[in-house]
Simulated assay, not measured.
Amino acid sequence: MAGLAFDAIRGPANWIARSAVEARAVPAARTAAENRAAGTVVFEAVSKTYRSASGEVRALDRVDLEIPAGTIFGVIGRSGAGKSSLLRTVNRLEEPTSGQVLVDGEPIAALDTAGLVALRRRIGMIFQQFNLLSAKTVRQNVALPLVVAGVPSAEIGSRVDEVLRLVGLENKAESYPSRLSGGQKQRVGIARALVSHPEILLCDEATSALDPETTLSILRLLRDINRRLGITIILITHEMSVIREVCSDVVVLEQGRIAETGPVWSVFGSPEHPATRALLEPLIRGLPEDLVARLLPHPAPGATAVLRITYSGKISPDLSSLAAAAAAPVRLIQAGIERIEGRAVGRMLIAVADGEGDRVLEERLRALGDEVERIGYVAADD
């Protein structure tokens, strides 16, 4: 998208529209230190309790978390874990019961009405159900935040054209939402969220209503936007496959608390909390059914050992080294290894002749994988 104003501006701080008047002009450049901080979100002991006639529900329980500027940060958990409540505290659609949220180091609870309006112009948001106005065209839907801010018509037109090119919908500007696919509607939502030049983009289950192919295209678009614009993206989901595809870091919530957090490759490779392991379960390939039917619990004449080698991002698979360490031919039965942030994560099943027994083979192979487990034995001709 060479030539876009976004590419020329680059620094997120230059996108901030502090008021309806300031939205009409490009703000002065910030220092390098200020630019580095733009897009940082910090949660300090954030709790949220909802009260109703039936009692109290604690959605968040003393959440401490820092989201660095310019990252794609995933928030995942099962239904009711507190994901949406956490996300909505960033733009004060929800007020914490206790604790505080800081954006670029500024406590947002202290903002007055004008400050809150300015904050929300710095934070774009896209939704699961798109939230488009059916009676307005794509162009009119995308332009709406600028119209509300009082931006001049000429500037509105140029900004809308920029973001429509960015999301690949320049030929749909005069179409109505009813004529668009689900993926196109979400692209309109993304364009509308970007048109005010925000430094943070909140994604509330943005792909849950989409089919797998369209989901992948939207996630690739978000990754491209992050790379081009340096914008911080906070994405909530209940699907680990979404986190794996696009995020660099992730926090797992369980009953309003942080179960674990860290780089995606580390959380995927060595999940520590039962909630994380439960969320990862659909992505982990079990033993092949035909292998289970033939698996022997004890060695038999001519049988080969079946070993499962786990890679959690610290070591990369090397079949030639495995064969050398085993001092015997190694047969690959099944492998599910992925590259996450440049690291190998997954499992491999191998069959290898084991003439020594007594776990000697596992010891020799342990340096080549993070975990080696003997599953059983299969006949040599299987």
Rank of each mutant, 00 (worst) to 15 (best):
G115Q: 10
G183A: 00
V26W: 10
R62N: 13
L111R: 12
R159L: 05
L201K: 06
D112G: 13
E162W: 10
G286A: 10
L235G: 09
Q184K: 06
I72V: 15
R36F: 07
T71K: 15
L146Y: 06
F130M: 07
A328D: 14
L307M: 09
L86Y: 04
G355Q: 11
L87D: 11
L279F: 02
L295E: 06
E356N: 13
K48Y: 01
I190T: 12
M125I: 14
P96C: 04
S316W: 04
A379H: 13
S84M: 02
L132K: 02
D64P: 12
L166C: 09
P152W: 02
P288D: 03
L307I: 05
F6T: 03
V75D: 10
L253G: 08
T237Y: 00
E373R: 14
L287H: 05
E56C: 02
E338A: 15
N91E: 08
V46P: 08
D112Q: 07
L296Q: 15
L86G: 05
I233P: 10
G313F: 06
E174F: 12
E106S: 13
A380I: 08
D381L: 04
E341N: 14
Q140A: 15
L307T: 05
T237V: 05
L132P: 03
R228H: 03
F127D: 05
E94P: 04
L291I: 13
S52C: 09
V26L: 15
I284P: 08
R159H: 11
A28H: 06
N35S: 11
G124N: 07
S312K: 12
T214A: 01
E213P: 06
V372E: 00
G77W: 00
T49N: 10
A367Q: 11
A135Y: 14
P271Q: 00
L111K: 11
D224N: 13
I231D: 09
E245D: 11
E272F: 00
T232M: 08
Y50L: 15
P288W: 00
L111T: 07
S98A: 15
R294P: 08
S52V: 10
I190Y: 03
K83S: 04
C203F: 03
L119F: 04
V46F: 04
P297T: 04
V151S: 04
E94K: 08
G376P: 13
Q140R: 15
A335Q: 14
E22F: 02
Y311W: 08
T97G: 08
A28Y: 00
M240E: 02
Q129M: 02
S153Q: 15
A379M: 06
L229W: 04
V103E: 11
R10F: 01
R257Q: 15
G256K: 04
G11W: 12
G99C: 08
T89K: 11
S84R: 11
D7L: 14
E245T: 03
